[in-house]
């Protein structure tokens, strides 16, 4: 019951945040020169001023910015994200067809980065300053320092061009018309490299943080108490050290989910994945305001939800924290 109340309160608190994000980004986009009509007309190779003016009027772009903002907010309140003039579809439909790709990419990359990073970090800390630790830490540093686009290109070169194991890009084999399990397998093979390219960078973050955190917790009094009780190394690590050491890593994970959305733009573009990142990029170029605002709206909701989730996980891990 108190958990429900907590969730309700957190969601209420999030509403003004999302509203501010919407208003802020709307105004920011309006500050940039050029609008949808400019982009359309540019694509057509020019048009006469009367046509341009009519088009603006039709799209409501002739109104003052504040009126446009108000109209957008009113529609948003009815869960109507508007019409994309570039894709000639409702924005909701455009987003829905792409959201799952980005979610798969994000969740795949983050969860594998988290699990492997935490495990490697704990392992490196247990053998701190040994050869194993040095190898793990150096590899981590290399992945951490490498730009994602470069890492992605290296992967393509190795797995697609040289070894011919994995497809270069796209989310599915378009000519094959797979169904059922075969389709999923096809999607999975297409996602291996994008997920890997994104995960390796974050993995380095989690590994380094986990290593430091484990080293710190190992020195704490209660670990000494557990040793004095006769607990062995494995028991110490799993029951006493790791759970305590996870706390800072969870914090970072929660913070990074929002940056992963940004990082996926590059990866989606390189692997030509039809995801939100790529959509955002083309929407900016085409000045497709409604789609862009839809993406921002969706992303802010995801970030807020993830933040709430992080706090829940944190409270579950650390009983000293009360959900209030």
């Amino acid at each position: 019951m108190s958990l429900l109340l907590y969730l309700l309160r957190r969601i209420l608190q999030a509403l003004p945040v999302i509203l501010l994000i919407i208003i802020g980004s709307f105004l920011l986009i309006k500050l940039a020169p050029g609008d949808t009509v400019d982009a359309l007309v540019g694509d057509m190779g020019g048009a006469d001023p009367a046509f341009v003016a009519r088009l603006r009027q039709e799209y409501g772009l002739d109104q003052p910015v504040l009126v446009q903002l108000w109209r957008y907010l009113v529609k948003l309140a009815q869960f109507d994200l508007g019409w994309s003039y570039v894709y000639e579809q409702p924005v909701t439909k455009v987003l829905a067809s792409r959201l799952w790709v980005t979610l798969l990419l994000m969740l795949g990359a983050l969860s594998s980065a988290f699990v492997v990073g935490v495990a490697l970090g704990a392992f490196a800390a247990r053998r701190a300053y040994s050869a194993t630790d040095n190898v793990i830490s150096t590899l981590g540093l290399i992945f951490y320092a490498m730009p994602s686009f470069f890492l992605a290109l290296l992967l393509v070169l190795l797995f697609s061009v040289k070894l011919n194991w994995l497809p270069v890009g796209g989310i599915r084999d378009i000519g094959a018309f797979h169904t059922g399990w075969k389709l999923w397998l096809d999607i999975a093979t297409h996602l291996v490299m994008p997920v890997l390219a994104l995960a390796l960078i974050y993995l380095a973050f989690y590994m380094r943080l986990m290593r430091t955190s484990v080293l710190e917790v190992m020195e704490l009094d209660f670990v000494r108490t557990a040793r004095a009780k006769g607990a062995g190394d494995a028991r110490l690590m799993f029951h006493h050290i790791m759970r305590n050491a996870l706390l800072p890593v969870i914090t970072l994970l929660g913070l990074q989910i929002s940056t992963v959305l940004g990082g996926s733009v590059v990866i989606e573009t390189i692997f030509s994945l039809p995801g939100l990142g790529q959509l955002a990029y083309t929407s900016v170029v085409k000045r497709d305001l409604n789609t862009l605002m839809g993406i921002i709206f969706l992303c802010s909701i995801i970030v807020v939800l993830v933040n709430i989730l992080t706090d829940l996980v944190y409270a579950w891990l650390d009983p000293r924290i009360e959900l209030k």
């Binding site: 704490l220 000494r224 108490t225 004095a228 009780k229 607990a231 062995g232």
Partner: peptide, 24 residues
């Protein structure tokens, strides 16, 4: 030694706050 610790020899520490695992 592990079999001895906690069984035949036990220890009490100074800081009762930090000597217990906060998560258990």
């Amino acid at each position: 030694m592990r079999a001895i610790r906690g069984d035949r020899v036990a220890m009490i520490f100074q800081e009762p706050m930090t000597a217990l695992n906060p998560q258990k």
